[in-house]
């Protein structure tokens, strides 16, 4: 994809999102603008319109930019799509999985499982001693410093609740 193409894509997506936002604002937020005051709708609607305008400008400006640069292929060292997709999904899976585990099994169990899973499944580590040390170590260090010493509340599990 060219830089020009990418700007058009980004501009179009943002424009659609802005339009949807504006529709949502008009459909759900009451005006309440009596007595000349600006009600709760004013800001979100104004910002939505601004975003739509700016993204339209981004599309327009991509047509105005000098040909030689704009149509240049994106630098070859951008990551291959497969790697990028893998990284994005791994990260979201890691964070999301951890959150679900925290909810279900509480801090200690969730942290041990997710750190081990991250090291093994995402980073492909096969040194079991290292994986065990890292997962139990992270869980314990964070638990002791934050919960035991500093008194920060850490999530208890809804189904499993191991605590000490």
């Amino acid at each position: 994809m060219t830089q020009q193409g990418r700007d058009r894509l980004a501009g179009s997506i943002l424009f659609v999102l802005a339009a949807l936002w504006c529709w949502g604002v008009v459909a759900t937020i009451p005006v309440l603008g009596a007595e000349g005051r600006l009600g709760p709708r004013g800001f979100p609607l104004g910002l939505g319109l601004l975003l739509a305008a700016f993204s339209a400008l981004l599309i327009v400006s991509s047509f105005l930019s000098p040909k030689d640069e704009a149509v240049q292929e994106l630098k070859a060292d951008g990551p291959p799509l497969g790697v990028e997709l893998w990284a994005v999904l791994s990260t979201l899976g890691f964070l999301g999985g951890y959150t679900v585990l925290l909810w279900a099994a509480g801090f200690l169990v969730a942290t041990v499982i997710i750190v081990a899973a991250g090291l093994v499944l995402i980073l492909g580590k096969r040194n079991w001693l290292f994986v065990a040390l890292m997962s139990f170590g992270t869980a314990l260090v964070v638990f002791v410093t934050f919960n035991k010493i500093l008194g920060v509340y850490l999530p208890h599990g809804r189904w499993i609740d191991i605590w000490f």
Partner: peptide
């Protein structure tokens, strides 16, 4: 160590059930 992890997990599930 995988086996250890499994039995550890089983133990924790059992403990949770008790609680």
């Amino acid at each position: 160590s995988f086996g250890v992890a499994t039995s550890w997990l089983a133990a924790s599930v059992a403990a949770a059930a008790l609680i």
